[in-house]
Structure formats: C-alpha cells, structure tokens
Amino acid sequence: VSKLITEALSVSQERVGMSLVALKKALAAAGYDVEKNNSRIKLSLKSLVNKGILVQTRGTGASGSFKLS
C-alpha cells in the first residue's frame, strides 16, 4: 500500500499535495480495493509521515493533504 501511495503522490501535480479523498480515488483507479482496505491506507499514511517520507500539509491524523518530502 505504501508503494502505491508514494507512486500516486509522485504523479500528482498539486503544489499543496493530494487530499485523502483524491488519494483514494487515485488508488481506486489503479485497481486497489479502497473500501475493503481503508484502515490499511490510513495506517500506511501515518507510518509514511512518521518515517519522514510524506509531509502532511493540512489536517490531522490520516485526514487532510499529503505530499512527498
């Protein structure tokens, strides 16, 4: 899941990052079952932020906008 998230964010052209909703849409378009794996998406977002791979530009927790650091 982390690999899919970083790939989706690297393609994004948004300056402020990608919102959680837009990220879920991009994952669904890539063929990932978002409804079934919603908790996995949130956990991997939090772990990527803690590792310093992603930066959360808006919001708290697993909601808001994210971009690559």
Rank of each mutant, 00 (worst) to 15 (best):
I41D: 01
V1S: 02
A30M: 13
S10V: 07
N38A: 15
K3D: 08
K24Y: 07
Q56A: 15
K36M: 05
V21T: 15
Y32L: 13
A62H: 11
I41G: 03
A30G: 07
E14N: 02
K3C: 03
S12Q: 12
K67S: 13
A8N: 02
S19T: 11
V16M: 10
G61K: 13
S44E: 15
V21N: 15
K24V: 02
N37S: 12
K36G: 05
G64Q: 14
Q13P: 03
G61W: 07
A62G: 15
A8S: 03
L20N: 01
R58A: 14
L45T: 01
V55R: 15
I53V: 12
G17N: 13
R58D: 13
K67G: 09
A28Y: 09
V1I: 13
S69E: 15
I41C: 03
A26I: 07
M18E: 09
T57L: 12
G17Y: 03
E35S: 08
V11K: 14
K3M: 01
K3E: 13
L54Y: 04
K36W: 01
G52Q: 05
R40H: 10
V21W: 07
G61R: 07
S39G: 10
D33L: 12
G59E: 10
K42V: 12
A26Q: 04
G17Q: 10
K46H: 04
N38R: 03
S10T: 13
I5V: 05
K67T: 07
K24T: 05
K3N: 08
F66L: 10
K25Q: 10
T57Y: 08
I5C: 03
K42F: 03
E14T: 03
A28E: 07
E14M: 01
L54K: 10
R15L: 02
K25G: 06
Y32K: 14
T57W: 05
A29G: 06
A22F: 03
R58V: 10
G52C: 12
L48V: 02
A62P: 12
R40Y: 05
G17T: 08
V11S: 11
A29S: 12
K24N: 04
R58N: 15
L20C: 06
S2I: 06
A22Q: 13
A26S: 09
K46E: 11
S10F: 01
S12T: 04
R15P: 07
K24M: 05
L48T: 01
T6P: 00
G61I: 07
K46D: 04
